[in-house]
Design a binder for these strands. Structure first.
Lengths: 188, 188
DNA sequence: CATATAAGTGGAGGGTTCCTCCGTTTAATG
DNA sequence: CATTAAACGGAGGAACCCTCCACTTATATG
């Protein structure tokens, strides 16, 4: 029923030329999305990938599927970041990961939009994030530093919401994040 | 320099037929935006308003201006809500307003998107919200119930971020809002 | 009331993007 | 090689965007 992240990655075509085109399309899409947002013309993407428009549509029947595929690699980067902070103290580790989450996601509009949709792929991505973040949260809760009545998906959603705030400064975002994180702390 | 909310409202045409069309367009747009998002075809909106496409473009040169005009009326409803909670105790009043903010804004995708843009109109709207909300915040701070180091725009942005979280349940949103609001409380 | 005129109107049409269909090309396999 | 299933590219119809301009009408004035 629920697809996992790992399953999704292996949806690339098997024939050599096809796989080359597929990868080329993803690369072109990432570039275009970064430059012009998720509404970038698909024909432009196909052109950049040096591929016919039909090939794009065969691999990604809808714009959504293309967005998702780009998104997939980004989200894994955030997941991996969880491992990099594991050596820190419980609270600092959680904090560092969430901060990185906000900074990273904040610059990638694709991610922000994605985090709030409910297609299968996006659900799988959220699951991946939950798995990566849960240990950090639980460790902090076990150390009695974080209130016990919140789950990892609450935390991610909260932080994702903050990351989505646009047209503001780095400082304000930090300040707002700090407020929210204070709410996470266990009431002494 | 900075336009105020009141100034913006009075941009309606003066001739009777023109004003009728203008209002009709806004109504049609609100309906279409609600049904199909802010990317709804403009020609569809003109059709619903029973008006030529040129009339739409004359009143609203860009899609953005149309979105803004719809947004304007919505945001005033939220501002007015501030008065309705003034009779409550300081903390309850702030809480009630922010809750209403989230519930109301959460159902109107236009608002969520708008809150994060930086056109003149949207800035004016934010200013309006700040004016409406500031008294509530300050009262709660004076009563030493809310930490003194936050400003109204931090609070609004924070809450707007939460309101923007999509594909979730009413309960989760409430829970997340509660966490964030806990962060607002003054550390005892 | 008549009428001048400024303000408003609608829709044709050129440009862009979307997405499907189908005849051609090519990688893989024996 | 030869075969064939898979992959390919691009033409073209449909939807939408936005401008331009010839026509209509509300309103102010004599």
């Amino acid at each position: 029923m629920t697809t996992t992240l790992a399953e999704l990655v292996q949806r690339r075509p098997s024939r050599a030329d096809a796989r080359r085109n597929y990868d080329s399309l993803i690369a072109a899409a990432r570039q275009s999305f970064a430059e012009m947002g998720t509404e970038a013309p698909l024909e432009e993407i196909a052109r950049r990938a040096d591929v016919g428009i039909a090939t794009l549509y065969r691999n990604f029947p809808t714009r959504e599927t293309l967005v998702e595929s780009v998104y997939l690699e980004e989200v894994q980067a955030v997941c991996n970041a969880a491992a990099e902070v594991a050596h820190l103290e419980p609270w600092e580790a959680l904090l560092a990961w969430l901060r990185r989450f906000v900074t990273y996601v904040g610059t990638k509009r694709v991610l922000v939009e994605g985090l709030n949709r409910d297609s299968n792929t996006f659900k799988a991505c959220r699951l991946g994030l939950y798995e990566a973040g849960a240990p950090l949260l639980i460790r902090a809760q076990d150390a009695r530093l974080v209130r016990p009545d919140v789950a990892i998906d609450d935390v991610i959603r909260l932080v994702a919401g903050i990351a989505g705030i646009g047209s503001t400064t780095e400082e304000q975002r930090d300040r707002i994040l700090a407020i929210a994180l204070d709410g996470l702390k266990r009431a002494a």
